[in-house]
């Protein structure tokens, strides 16, 4: 059972019980309540992606963004395209999720709560198992990441989603 401390509004919801997280964590839940602020949402049953643990893990996206709307837009579209979503509004909590679930792609909004903390930023940058996409502008990421993965605001969602999908596909194609 996955337990997320400190934030009772971070919940797990799934169409059915599925093991998809790494590190032995099992997500358990019911239907996703629409009022949840943060949720961990596995792929709906109608999705085309494989529900094997490894397959799901490779298409797991972590969204760390203070904006509920941005998370909703990305979640809606990415889920429709076969990805699973972990989400939170807080950078510190996002880092815990990142370390626990090792998502394939992490989208980090630099405006998220605590995202201005250097230690936390270092934490995201130092995780080798995830492809980081940064929303907002910070010098360090500009030099560390390919330009497509540093997205300045206001941005269009189309190119951002294409970037995330490309990273997910790369992962399926064998990239770590």
């Amino acid at each position: 059972m996955l337990t997320l401390e400190r934030d009772e509004k971070t919940r797990v919801c799934a169409c059915s019980r599925k093991e998809f997280a790494q590190g032995g964590a099992v997500l358990e839940g019911s239907n996703c309540p629409s009022t949840l602020v943060e949720s961990i949402m596995p792929l709906p049953c109608s999705g085309s992606a494989s529900h094997t643990t490894s397959g799901l893990a490779r298409r797991l996206v972590l969204l760390v963004d203070q904006s509920v709307e941005t998370r909703e837009v990305l979640r809606t579209i990415l889920e429709r395209r076969g990805a699973q979503i972990l989400e939170t509004s807080q950078a510190r909590e996002g880092l815990e999720l990142l370390r626990t679930h090792r998502p394939t792609v992490t989208v980090l909004d630099l405006g998220a709560h605590d995202a201005d903390n250097e230690e936390i930023r270092d934490g995201y940058a130092d995780e080798p198992d995830t492809s980081l996409v940064v929303l907002g502008m910070a010098k360090r990421y500009k030099t560390q990441l390919p330009s497509a993965r540093v997205v300045q605001k206001p941005y269009h969602f189309g190119p951002l989603i294409r970037t995330i999908e490309a990273l997910l596909n790369e992962s399926v194609g064998g990239r770590s």
Partner: peptide, 23 residues
């Protein structure tokens, strides 16, 4: 205004995708 614009873009994008996929 940038945040609001971002929200409008997100909403519009969903409308566009929804219409495309008849969702």
């Amino acid at each position: 205004i940038k945040n609001i614009l971002q929200g409008i873009r997100g909403g519009s994008f969903l409308i566009e995708e929804g219409l495309k996929d008849n969702a």
